[in-house]
Simulated scan of single mutants.
Amino acid sequence: MRHLEYRKLNEIEPKKLLSLLNKKTTRQHLVDHAPFNPESIAEWINSKVDTDFRHGCRVRAITIDKQLAGWCGIQLEGQNYEIAIVIEDIYWGLGRPVFFEMMSWAKELGHTIIHIHLLNTRPEYNFLKKIAKKVYQSDILGGKFTTYEIEVGQGGLKVG
């Protein structure tokens, strides 16, 4: 069985994050921006580490058997807390267990509502649609997203 672990971003080699975040299959599902370089990845890591210290937030690298698989976080976007999950394509099947772990974090952090914004390059997810209180289109940082608004409840989810 594979060992899934959540580690602080500053415990991961920046060049591994740079490689993941610049990978074409990763970038196609992110807001369009210039590829990372050693300086910008260091800034990005520092900003996520700062986010991790904010009330109601948690940001982690995802490792599988000590290999970087992606990153995830609960972070404040505007007035709402959102879940972000970015996973390397060879690990895409991990999204659901990572999501459930993050929903337990959301409960632990005292959230009642959490948002997930998926870029319009991603298909609608029936699983998320079924549990969402609301599903709508959003414009964020120049990208079009499907937003799922999910209530945090008993056991991490409140199915609506």
Rank of each mutant, 00 (worst) to 15 (best):
R96Y: 15
R96I: 07
R96W: 07
R96T: 13
P97Y: 06
P97M: 03
P97K: 04
V98C: 03
V98P: 00
V98L: 02
F99S: 01
F99G: 01
F99H: 00
F100H: 07
F100G: 04
F100A: 00
F100I: 06
E101N: 03
E101S: 07
E101T: 10
E101Y: 02
M102V: 10
M102N: 02
M102D: 02
M103E: 00
M103Y: 01
S104I: 02
S104W: 00
S104C: 01
W105E: 06
W105T: 06
A106Y: 03
A106H: 01
K107T: 01
E108G: 07
E108A: 05
E108P: 00
E108W: 07
L109T: 12
L109Y: 09
L109W: 03
L109H: 13
L109D: 06
L109R: 06
G110S: 06
G110H: 02
G110A: 07
H111T: 12
H111K: 10
H111S: 10
T112I: 02
T112K: 12
T112L: 04
I113V: 12
I113Q: 11
I113A: 03
I113R: 08
I113F: 09
I114V: 14
I114A: 07
I114W: 03
I114L: 08
I114Y: 03
H115W: 09
H115T: 10
H115D: 14
H115V: 13
H115Q: 15
H115A: 08
I116T: 10
I116E: 05
I116Y: 00
I116P: 00
H117P: 02
H117Y: 08
L118M: 14
L118Q: 10
L118E: 12
L119V: 06
L119N: 04
L119M: 03
L119C: 03
L119S: 02
N120C: 10
N120S: 08
N120K: 07
T121D: 09
T121Y: 04
T121I: 04
T121E: 09
T121Q: 11
T121G: 10
R122K: 15
R122I: 14
R122H: 14
P123N: 14
P123H: 13
E124P: 01
E124I: 11
E124W: 01
E124T: 07
Y125H: 12
Y125G: 05
Y125F: 09
Y125S: 13
N126D: 09
N126S: 10
N126F: 11
F127S: 12
F127I: 15
F127P: 04
L128G: 05
L128S: 04
L128E: 04
L128P: 02
K129N: 10
K129C: 06
K129R: 13
K130Q: 10
K130N: 15
K130R: 15
K130I: 11
I131K: 01
I131G: 05
I131F: 11
A132F: 04
A132S: 14
A132V: 07
K133Y: 15
K133T: 12
K134F: 12
K134W: 14
V135E: 01
V135T: 07
V135C: 07
Y136N: 13
Y136S: 11
Y136Q: 09
Y136A: 11
Q137A: 06
S138A: 11
S138W: 03
S138L: 02
D139E: 14
D139T: 13
D139R: 13
I140E: 06
L141M: 15
L141G: 14
L141A: 15
L141P: 08
G142M: 15
G142R: 14
K144T: 12
K144C: 09
K144G: 03
K144Q: 11
K144W: 06
